[in-house]
Design a protein around this nucleic acid. Structure first.
Length: 213
DNA sequence: GCCCAGGTGTTTC
DNA sequence: GAAACACATGGG
């Protein structure tokens, strides 16, 4: 059984253990000077679906090398030369599928006036709109919202579920909605906190895997 | 060779 | 509705 607000306790514990997040998303978002543009975070959120991060980085490097690291260039490639785009992101696996997903998402942001303009919309409305895009499910939507648009919404992924199991968090179920609610209702509403915490969960999760396996 | 990796959409019971 | 399946590459 868990202490009243053990989430902050867990957060501080992870923070002591790992310091500032070294997670890929976290790092990506901290190092704004070199990487990533917000648009790259959006692209990465789709590429990383069910995919090792290393393979995503290979693909992102390819895209940038071919000057296709922006939503507009991705969209144009997807429309005019989908096979080329597929080859650029091949390392991610599911590349034919992801070409379509990228096209749909890029189209949405371009059609609606760009990332900056879109991020002015109310959070719940924006989340619904993202979820309607073919290829954008809850995790991808929330990754985009949290890491690309700096919205205070907690990302649930396999690492989050693993933590909930390991720490025996008193969550009703491990389904996406329940777990997300569990976190957001117990934490201050801060996108920086959510970014850091989620990043630490991933770092800790990977660390566990290495040390136990 | 086998297993896994920060999902999502479709089909099937 | 839940469960099973397809999508696919790269690395340990």
């Amino acid at each position: 059984m868990s202490a009243p607000n053990n989430l902050l306790f867990i957060y501080r514990q992870l923070r002591r253990q790992y310091g500032h997040p070294q997670d890929q998303w976290g790092l990506w978002c901290k190092r704004r000077k070199s990487l990533p543009e917000k648009e790259e975070v959006i692209i990465g959120a789709i590429l990383t679906q069910r995919t090792n991060w290393r393979n995503v980085e290979l693909a992102m490097a390819n895209l940038k090398r071919h000057k296709a690291g922006r939503l507009k260039t991705v969209y144009n490639l997807a429309k005019n030369n989908p096979r080329k785009l597929a080859m650029l992101i091949r390392s991610c696996g599911f590349y034919k599928t992801k070409v379509k997903y990228l096209k749909t998402a890029a189209d949405f942001f371009i059609r609606n006036g760009g990332v900056k303009k879109i991020s002015n919309r109310p959070l719940t409305k924006l989340r619904d709109e993202l979820l309607q895009l073919h290829g954008v499910g809850p995790e991808t939507a929330d990754s985009i919202l949290l890491y690309a648009l700096s919205k205070p919404i907690f990302v649930v992924d396999e690492y989050t579920r693993r933590l909930a199991r390991q720490k025996s968090l008193a969550v009703k179920s491990l389904n996406y909605h329940h777990l997300q609610e569990f976190f957001t209702r117990r934490l201050p509403k801060s996108y920086q906190l959510y970014q850091d915490f989620h990043a630490l969960i991933v770092v800790g999760g990977k660390d566990d895997r290495v040390s136990s396996g």
